[in-house]
């Protein structure tokens, strides 16, 4: 038997985190402070997401972790193993089978359902941080809905690059009230933020939790003459031929050859098993 309490954290801590989560759900997009604990992993590796997952998991849950869409990178594997060991929950790589999905920097391609919870790892929860370094001031700006500054950032983008060049961590307004940083997901994923699943955001170092309840309106900020666009590489996946998924660009050699592959490895695998073959793919055996 495991010597750890279920999901590593003690019950009082989980209770404190659940309280923050409930408050976050009650006030969509509002950053709730919580007493973030030291976790057995460095800050920046998802300590916030792990704490939210720990407070959310039940013994019956099936857990999935993705990092940049992938199930098999170091971060994803170590967090998945962590909960396998400390919570003994079932784990999966299949999006549809998971009840709790912890993610870093992506939303899965497959549409999530009302039975699922998506937990984000957030490095910097404050969308106004790089424009206004004072926490006292940003809190006041949120309280009074003074969000003009957010558009100054987009203005700067257009004036320097001719288009809104912000391609990830693209600011959104939740439920027509709070401006929120959707964590560094590509802006391709922004339209998916209005979904059936519960979305929880945990920032461990910054000690903030926020949430988006199911089907809450989430609007990406933009200008009338420069509307928001969800962009992706203009290719099909070279392995599974998907044209609607977010792609990673992989350099193959030093002769300029490259390939584009789905960043969501589970989505790509499922498509290949279903018989789709891309430019560089092989027929499924």
């Amino acid at each position: 038997m495991s010597d750890y309490n279920f999901a590593y954290l003690d019950e009082q801590t989980k209770r404190m985190i659940r309280r923050a989560i409930l408050k976050g759900l009650a006030v969509p997009g509002y950053q709730v402070t919580f007493a973030s604990r030291e976790m057995p992993m460095p800050y920046g590796w998802g300590t916030g997401g792990v704490q939210v997952s720990a407070a959310t998991l039940t013994p019956e849950d099936t857990f999935k972790v993705i990092d940049q869409g992938s199930d098999d990178t170091t971060n994803a594997v170590s967090i998945r193993k962590f909960f396998e060991k400390t919570a003994r929950v079932a784990v999966t790589e299949e999006t549809e089978k998971a009840s709790v999905i912890q993610t870093r920097h992506r939303i899965p391609e497959a549409a999530l359902t009302e039975d699922q919870i998506l937990v984000y790892q957030v490095p910097i929860p404050e969308p106004l941080r790089f424009l206004e370094p004072r926490e006292t001031e940003t809190r006041k700006m949120h309280a009074l809905q003074e969000y003009g500054l957010m558009h100054v950032k987009l203005y700067e983008d257009i004036s320097q690059h001719g288009a809104i060049a912000t391609s990830y961590a693209y600011p959104v307004k939740v439920s027509d009230r709070y401006v929120m940083d959707p964590s560094p997901i590509p802006k391709f994923d922004n339209p998916k933020l209005e979904m059936a699943a519960i979305q929880l955001f945990g920032a461990g170092r910054e000690q903030r939790i926020y949430a988006v309840p199911p089907w809450t309106p989430v609007v990406s900020l933009d200008f009338e003459d420069y509307p928001f666009e969800a962009t992706k590489a203009d290719h099909a996946c070279d392995l599974c031929d998907a044209e609607d998924s977010y792609l990673d660009e992989v350099i193959l050699d030093d002769a300029g050859n490259r390939m584009f592959v789905c960043s969501d490895t589970d989505y790509c695998r499922a498509r290949r098993e279903a018989g789709h073959v891309g430019r560089l793919g092989e027929e499924a055996a």
């Binding site: 003009g148 500054l149 100054v152 004036s159 200008f223 003459d225």
Partner: peptide
């Protein structure tokens, strides 16, 4: 705001009171 362009500096107050048309602001 020293790290924001001159145009952005002038536009900030306009955007703060709700201007959302880049061309007009500029």
């Amino acid at each position: 705001r020293m790290n924001v362009s001159a145009g952005g500096n002038i536009g900030e107050r306009l955007m703060a009171v709700g201007a959302r048309h880049y061309g007009d602001i500029r």
